[in-house]
Protein backbone atom coordinates (compact mmCIF):
# COMPACT_ATOMS: atom_id res chain seq x y z
CA UNK A 1 0.00 0.00 0.00
CA UNK A 2 1.19 3.51 -0.71
CA UNK A 3 2.45 5.60 2.18
CA UNK A 4 0.97 8.93 1.13
CA UNK A 5 -1.85 9.25 -1.32
CA UNK A 6 -3.89 12.19 -2.56
CA UNK A 7 -7.26 11.89 -4.23
CA UNK A 8 -8.62 14.64 -6.49
CA UNK A 9 -6.69 17.17 -4.45
CA UNK A 10 -7.45 20.82 -5.27
CA UNK A 11 -6.50 24.00 -3.49
CA UNK A 12 -7.92 27.44 -4.23
CA UNK A 13 -6.43 30.49 -2.50
CA UNK A 14 -8.62 33.40 -1.36
CA UNK A 15 -11.75 31.61 -2.48
CA UNK A 16 -14.74 33.92 -2.97
CA UNK A 17 -12.66 37.09 -3.46
CA UNK A 18 -11.44 38.82 -6.63
CA UNK A 19 -8.00 37.36 -5.85
CA UNK A 20 -9.19 33.79 -6.18
CA UNK A 21 -6.50 31.51 -7.58
CA UNK A 22 -6.42 27.79 -8.27
CA UNK A 23 -2.98 26.71 -7.09
CA UNK A 24 -3.47 22.93 -7.11
CA UNK A 25 -5.89 21.35 -9.52
CA UNK A 26 -7.25 17.85 -9.12
CA UNK A 27 -4.06 15.97 -8.27
CA UNK A 28 -4.09 12.18 -7.84
CA UNK A 29 -0.77 11.08 -6.44
CA UNK A 30 0.82 8.19 -4.58
CA UNK A 31 4.21 7.63 -3.05
CA UNK A 32 5.59 4.41 -1.56
CA UNK A 33 7.90 3.93 1.37
CA UNK A 34 11.56 4.49 0.58
CA UNK A 35 11.05 6.35 -2.67
CA UNK A 36 13.15 9.38 -3.55
CA UNK A 37 10.85 11.70 -5.50
CA UNK A 38 11.76 14.95 -7.20
CA UNK A 39 9.17 17.62 -7.95
CA UNK A 40 9.87 20.15 -10.68
CA UNK A 41 7.77 22.86 -12.26
CA UNK A 42 8.00 26.50 -13.26
CA UNK A 43 7.70 29.29 -10.69
CA UNK A 44 4.14 29.62 -9.40
CA UNK A 45 3.10 26.20 -10.68
CA UNK A 46 1.86 25.13 -7.24
CA UNK A 47 4.68 22.92 -5.94
CA UNK A 48 4.89 24.55 -2.53
CA UNK A 49 1.13 24.56 -2.17
CA UNK A 50 0.95 20.88 -3.08
CA UNK A 51 3.56 19.68 -0.61
CA UNK A 52 2.04 21.68 2.23
CA UNK A 53 -0.95 19.37 1.93
CA UNK A 54 1.14 16.28 2.53
CA UNK A 55 1.71 17.07 6.22
CA UNK A 56 -1.74 18.52 6.73
CA UNK A 57 -0.60 22.13 6.95
CA UNK A 58 -3.00 23.25 4.26
CA UNK A 59 -6.49 21.84 4.11
CA UNK A 60 -7.61 20.77 0.64
CA UNK A 61 -10.35 22.91 -0.87
CA UNK A 62 -11.48 19.67 -2.46
CA UNK A 63 -10.30 16.07 -2.31
CA UNK A 64 -8.36 14.30 0.43
CA UNK A 65 -4.89 13.27 1.55
CA UNK A 66 -4.22 9.87 3.10
CA UNK A 67 -1.28 8.73 5.19
CA UNK A 68 -1.07 4.97 5.68
CA UNK A 69 -4.62 4.70 4.38
CA UNK A 70 -6.16 7.13 6.90
CA UNK A 71 -7.39 10.62 6.00
CA UNK A 72 -4.90 13.12 7.43
CA UNK A 73 -7.71 15.39 8.58
CA UNK A 74 -9.85 12.65 10.13
CA UNK A 75 -9.08 13.87 13.67
CA UNK A 76 -7.06 16.80 15.00
CA UNK A 77 -4.87 14.41 16.95
CA UNK A 78 -4.05 12.43 13.81
CA UNK A 79 -3.18 15.61 11.91
CA UNK A 80 -0.78 16.49 14.69
CA UNK A 81 0.79 13.02 14.71
CA UNK A 82 1.32 13.30 10.96
CA UNK A 83 3.32 16.50 11.42
CA UNK A 84 5.94 14.45 13.31
CA UNK A 85 5.95 11.68 10.71
CA UNK A 86 6.05 13.90 7.66
CA UNK A 87 8.76 16.51 8.17
CA UNK A 88 8.50 19.59 5.97
CA UNK A 89 11.36 22.00 5.36
CA UNK A 90 9.90 25.19 3.89
CA UNK A 91 11.12 27.29 1.04
CA UNK A 92 13.58 29.83 2.53
CA UNK A 93 13.27 28.31 6.00
CA UNK A 94 15.88 30.69 7.37
CA UNK A 95 13.16 33.29 7.84
CA UNK A 96 11.27 30.95 10.08
CA UNK A 97 13.69 30.37 12.93
CA UNK A 98 12.15 31.73 16.07
CA UNK A 99 13.80 30.52 19.27
CA UNK A 100 16.49 32.38 21.16
CA UNK A 101 19.23 29.82 20.49
CA UNK A 102 19.85 27.40 17.65
CA UNK A 103 19.69 24.54 20.13
CA UNK A 104 16.21 25.54 21.32
CA UNK A 105 15.05 25.98 17.78
CA UNK A 106 16.11 22.49 16.78
CA UNK A 107 14.65 21.14 20.03
CA UNK A 108 11.22 22.66 19.31
CA UNK A 109 9.91 19.60 17.44
CA UNK A 110 11.22 16.91 19.84
CA UNK A 111 9.89 18.92 22.80
CA UNK A 112 6.45 19.00 21.21
CA UNK A 113 6.73 15.23 20.90
CA UNK A 114 6.97 15.18 24.72
CA UNK A 115 10.34 13.44 24.76
CA UNK A 116 12.49 13.43 27.88
CA UNK A 117 15.25 16.01 28.31
CA UNK A 118 18.15 13.61 27.48
CA UNK A 119 16.29 12.28 24.44
CA UNK A 120 15.76 15.82 23.18
CA UNK A 121 19.48 16.57 23.61
CA UNK A 122 20.45 13.43 21.79
CA UNK A 123 18.17 14.24 18.89
CA UNK A 124 19.40 17.82 18.62
CA UNK A 125 23.04 16.68 18.35
CA UNK A 126 22.16 13.92 15.92
CA UNK A 127 20.12 16.29 13.74
CA UNK A 128 22.86 18.93 13.81
CA UNK A 129 25.22 16.23 12.57
CA UNK A 130 22.93 15.19 9.73
CA UNK A 131 22.40 18.78 8.66
CA UNK A 132 26.13 19.50 8.72
CA UNK A 133 25.74 22.16 11.40
CA UNK A 134 28.79 22.84 13.54
CA UNK A 135 28.14 22.09 17.22
CA UNK A 136 29.72 25.35 18.30
CA UNK A 137 26.82 27.17 16.64
CA UNK A 138 24.16 25.54 18.81
CA UNK A 139 24.46 28.07 21.62
CA UNK A 140 24.27 31.06 19.26
CA UNK A 141 21.17 33.06 18.37
CA UNK A 142 19.72 31.91 15.03
CA UNK A 143 19.63 35.52 13.88
CA UNK A 144 23.40 35.71 14.11
CA UNK A 145 24.07 32.90 11.61
CA UNK A 146 24.88 33.20 7.94
CA UNK A 147 22.20 32.34 5.38
CA UNK A 148 23.61 28.88 4.73
CA UNK A 149 23.99 28.11 8.43
CA UNK A 150 20.41 29.21 9.07
CA UNK A 151 19.26 26.91 6.29
CA UNK A 152 21.07 24.01 7.95
CA UNK A 153 19.62 24.87 11.35
CA UNK A 154 16.14 24.82 9.84
CA UNK A 155 16.74 21.44 8.20
CA UNK A 156 18.11 20.12 11.50
CA UNK A 157 14.93 21.33 13.23
CA UNK A 158 12.88 19.04 11.01
CA UNK A 159 15.28 16.08 11.01
CA UNK A 160 15.28 16.18 14.83
CA UNK A 161 11.75 14.76 14.75
CA UNK A 162 13.14 11.74 12.85
CA UNK A 163 10.35 11.89 10.28
CA UNK A 164 9.58 8.87 8.09
CA UNK A 165 8.96 11.20 5.19
CA UNK A 166 11.21 14.19 4.61
CA UNK A 167 9.91 16.91 2.29
CA UNK A 168 12.25 19.72 1.28
CA UNK A 169 11.16 22.79 -0.67
CA UNK A 170 14.14 24.11 -2.64
CA UNK A 171 16.62 23.42 0.15
CA UNK A 172 19.63 24.54 -1.88
CA UNK A 173 18.27 27.70 -3.53
CA UNK A 174 20.66 30.60 -3.16
CA UNK A 175 23.61 28.67 -1.68
CA UNK A 176 27.12 28.32 -3.10
CA UNK A 177 27.78 25.13 -5.14
CA UNK A 178 29.80 23.52 -2.36
CA UNK A 179 27.05 24.18 0.17
CA UNK A 180 24.42 22.87 -2.23
CA UNK A 181 26.25 19.60 -2.77
CA UNK A 182 26.78 19.17 0.95
CA UNK A 183 23.11 19.69 1.82
CA UNK A 184 22.09 17.13 -0.78
CA UNK A 185 24.69 14.70 0.58
CA UNK A 186 23.28 15.18 4.07
CA UNK A 187 19.77 14.48 2.85
CA UNK A 188 20.89 11.30 1.10
CA UNK A 189 22.69 10.23 4.29
CA UNK A 190 19.54 10.75 6.32
CA UNK A 191 17.53 8.79 3.78
CA UNK A 192 19.82 5.76 3.82
CA UNK A 193 20.32 5.66 7.58
CA UNK A 194 16.61 6.00 8.43
CA UNK A 195 15.22 4.25 5.37
CA UNK A 196 13.19 7.40 4.87
CA UNK A 197 11.00 8.54 2.01
CA UNK A 198 12.20 11.83 0.54
CA UNK A 199 10.43 14.41 -1.60
CA UNK A 200 12.69 17.10 -3.03
CA UNK A 201 11.34 20.22 -4.74
CA UNK A 202 13.99 22.01 -6.75
CA UNK A 203 14.80 24.11 -9.80
CA UNK A 204 18.24 22.53 -10.01
CA UNK A 205 17.94 19.77 -12.62
CA UNK A 206 21.44 18.39 -12.01
CA UNK A 207 20.49 17.83 -8.38
CA UNK A 208 17.35 15.97 -9.39
CA UNK A 209 19.09 13.97 -12.11
CA UNK A 210 21.76 12.66 -9.79
CA UNK A 211 19.59 11.58 -6.89
CA UNK A 212 15.92 10.86 -7.42
CA UNK A 213 14.32 7.73 -8.83
CA UNK A 214 11.08 9.37 -9.90
CA UNK A 215 10.09 12.83 -11.11
CA UNK A 216 6.79 14.64 -10.79
CA UNK A 217 6.37 17.57 -13.16
CA UNK A 218 3.72 20.08 -12.14
CA UNK A 219 2.37 22.76 -14.44
CA UNK A 220 -0.38 25.21 -13.48
CA UNK A 221 -1.40 23.08 -10.55
CA UNK A 222 -1.70 19.77 -12.43
CA UNK A 223 0.65 16.83 -12.85
CA UNK A 224 1.89 16.71 -16.44
CA UNK A 225 4.51 14.00 -16.08
CA UNK A 226 5.14 11.36 -13.45
CA UNK A 227 7.97 9.12 -14.59
CA UNK A 228 11.60 8.07 -14.29
CA UNK A 229 14.24 10.79 -14.77
CA UNK A 230 15.40 9.08 -17.98
CA UNK A 231 12.00 9.43 -19.57
CA UNK A 232 11.17 12.89 -18.25
CA UNK A 233 14.51 14.31 -19.35
CA UNK A 234 14.27 12.74 -22.79
CA UNK A 235 11.46 15.17 -23.63
CA UNK A 236 13.61 18.25 -23.59
CA UNK A 237 11.45 20.25 -25.99
CA UNK A 238 8.40 19.63 -23.81
CA UNK A 239 10.36 20.77 -20.77
CA UNK A 240 11.40 23.97 -22.53
CA UNK A 241 7.78 24.60 -23.41
CA UNK A 242 6.89 24.42 -19.71
CA UNK A 243 9.59 26.88 -18.72
CA UNK A 244 12.10 24.24 -17.61
CA UNK A 245 15.21 22.69 -19.09
CA UNK A 246 16.68 19.19 -19.07
CA UNK A 247 20.02 18.76 -17.25
CA UNK A 248 23.10 20.00 -19.11
CA UNK A 249 24.30 16.43 -19.76
CA UNK A 250 21.00 15.49 -21.44
CA UNK A 251 21.08 18.62 -23.59
CA UNK A 252 24.68 17.95 -24.56
CA UNK A 253 23.91 14.33 -25.46
CA UNK A 254 21.05 15.50 -27.64
CA UNK A 255 23.20 18.13 -29.35
CA UNK A 256 25.88 15.53 -30.04
CA UNK A 257 23.25 13.25 -31.55
CA UNK A 258 22.16 16.04 -33.90
CA UNK A 259 25.80 16.51 -34.85
CA UNK A 260 26.07 12.80 -35.64
CA UNK A 261 27.59 11.36 -32.45
CA UNK A 262 24.95 9.13 -30.85
CA UNK A 263 25.84 8.40 -27.24
CA UNK A 264 22.65 6.41 -26.68
CA UNK A 265 19.24 7.02 -25.12
CA UNK A 266 18.34 7.97 -21.55
CA UNK A 267 21.46 9.96 -20.69
CA UNK A 268 20.91 12.73 -18.17
CA UNK A 269 23.83 12.82 -15.74
CA UNK A 270 27.41 13.85 -16.36
CA UNK A 271 28.66 10.43 -15.26
CA UNK A 272 26.44 8.59 -17.74
CA UNK A 273 27.51 10.88 -20.56
CA UNK A 274 31.19 10.48 -19.69
CA UNK A 275 30.85 6.71 -19.62
CA UNK A 276 28.98 6.63 -22.93
CA UNK A 277 31.51 8.90 -24.60
CA UNK A 278 34.40 6.82 -23.28
CA UNK A 279 32.78 3.72 -24.74
CA UNK A 280 32.41 5.37 -28.12
CA UNK A 281 36.00 6.55 -27.98
CA UNK A 282 37.03 3.00 -27.06
CA UNK A 283 35.22 1.62 -30.09
CA UNK A 284 36.74 4.19 -32.43
CA UNK A 285 40.29 4.35 -31.10
CA UNK A 286 40.48 0.67 -30.22
CA UNK A 287 41.88 1.22 -26.70
CA UNK A 288 39.79 2.90 -24.02
CA UNK A 289 41.60 4.49 -21.14
CA UNK A 290 40.29 6.22 -18.05
Amino acid sequence: MSLIKTEKLSHIYSIGTPFERVAVNNIDFEINKGEFLGIIGATGSGKSTFIQHLNGLLKPTEGSVFYDGTDIHSTKQYTRDIRFKVGLVFQYPEYQLFESTVFDDIAFGPKNMKLSEPDVRERVYEAAGFAGLDESLLSKSPFGLSGGEKRRAAIAGVIAMRPDVLILDEPTAGLDPGGQAEIIRNIVNYKTSHNATVILVTHNMEEIARNVDRILLINRGSIVMDDTPARVFSESSRLTELGLAAPKAALLAERLRVLGLDAGQGIYTTEQLRKALCEIKGLQGGNAHA
Binding site: Q52, N55, L57, K76, R80, R83, F84, G87, L88, F90, P93, Y95, Q96, F98, F108, G109, N112, M113, G157, V158, M161
Partner: peptide
Protein backbone atom coordinates in the same frame (compact mmCIF):
# COMPACT_ATOMS: atom_id res chain seq x y z
CA UNK B 1 1.28 33.01 8.92
CA UNK B 2 4.71 31.79 7.83
CA UNK B 3 6.09 31.46 11.33
CA UNK B 4 2.87 29.80 12.47
CA UNK B 5 3.19 27.32 9.61
CA UNK B 6 6.79 26.58 10.55
CA UNK B 7 5.83 26.00 14.17
CA UNK B 8 2.77 23.97 13.27
CA UNK B 9 4.73 21.69 10.99
CA UNK B 10 6.98 20.98 13.96
CA UNK B 11 4.07 20.02 16.13
CA UNK B 12 3.05 23.32 17.71
CA UNK B 13 -0.61 23.20 18.58
CA UNK B 14 -2.65 26.36 18.03
CA UNK B 15 -5.97 24.67 17.58
CA UNK B 16 -6.79 22.49 20.54
Amino acid sequence: DKIMSAQKSRGADFET
